[in-house]
Design a protein around this nucleic acid. Structure first.
Length: 274
DNA sequence: CGGGCCACCTGGCGGC
DNA sequence: TGCCGCCAGGTGGCCC
């Protein structure tokens, strides 16, 4: 389920149930997800209290007693649930807590992964060290986009999804942000003017914040930890709407179009986005 | 280093 | 009903 708003919603759900809880037992139902679980993964987590949950990019980071960090990534189809329901297909990690709660990680496609490492190694972690700016931080603005995109020949849509430049924006919110900013997805990233970069920064923030307020987007049957579904999908302007009338209100009635970039589908308005 | 492409997986859906 | 191809919210690694 995961772009920034969905991951942040999951993080908040984990925090609500499990802040301060002590891990009692960790069961791995298979030796790997996309990556192998590190040696001693279960033993390292067991008997440690969770001090809090943070998010960096699309990674969930749990601070543990003993200056350790438990990292999770949801991939495309990963989800957590706090419940004592029976095990179901694709439940790969089951964590029981001292207070009786059970946390289960389910991931049909197994593109997710987990790791555990010392807190002092976090900044050097190969998957965390080269991440770009957090779009909901006060370091993010048009100037930052201009700097990140400078000299890039790649399409602005792909630059927007490049986690080394800006984190948290995936395929849905890249399309939605570019639509809102009125920028054509195939524009060369390095060609953005200052005003366009500023408009894009505002659009990215607006779209992510609006999605966050809605509890993220729920495609297919995905549920949040508490069993609720996000509902931002009802506010999409273009994502998944190829052929439908464009809501932009510019000129004559026209339809939303799609194209493929880097193997991913992009949705856009050929009139509003230039 | 940048950019393009493939790989990793399972499941759901539309078309025949 | 069954099979087939295609698509899906991500990202690491390989190649040039």
């Amino acid at each position: 389920m995961p772009e920034l708003p969905e991951v942040e919603t999951v993080r908040a759900g984990l925090a609500k149930s499990l802040d301060g809880a002590r891990i009692y037992k960790v069961q791995l139902m298979r030796p790997n997800l996309r990556l192998p679980f590190p040696d001693g993964f279960a033993q390292t987590l067991e008997n440690k209290r969770i001090l809090g949950f943070r998010r960096r990019a699309k990674y969930i980071l749990a601070d543990l007693e003993g200056d350790m960090v438990w990292m999770s990534h949801l991939g495309m189809s990963g989800s957590f649930r706090v419940s004592k329901d029976a095990q179901i297909k694709h439940d790969h990690v089951i964590m029981d807590f001292e207070d009786g709660q059970r946390l289960t990680f389910n991931d049909p496609r197994r593109f997710g992964f987990m790791d555990v490492f010392g807190a002092k190694d976090e900044d050097k972690h190969p998957y965390l060290a080269h991440l770009g700016v957090e779009p909901l931080s006060n370091h993010f603005n048009g100037a930052r986009i201009l700097e990140a995109f400078k000299g890039r020949k790649t399409a602005v849509k792909q630059a927007l999804m490049d986690q080394k430049l800006i984190v948290g924006v995936g395929n849905i919110y890249a399309s939605e942000s570019l639509y809102m900013a009125g920028i054509h997805p195939e524009r060369e990233a390095g060609s953005l003017k200052k005003v366009e970069a500023e408009r894009l920064a505002v659009s990215v923030v607006d779209v992510l914040r609006a999605a966050l307020v809605s509890g993220g987007s729920t495609l297919r049957d995905h549920k949040q930890l508490d069993g609720n579904t996000g509902y931002f999908q009802h506010h999409f302007n273009v994502y998944g709407k190829k052929g439908q009338d464009c809501p932009c209100g510019t000129g004559k009635i026209h339809s939303i179009q799609s194209l493929t970039q880097g193997g991913r589908t992009t949705f856009y308005c050929p009139v509003k986005q230039r």
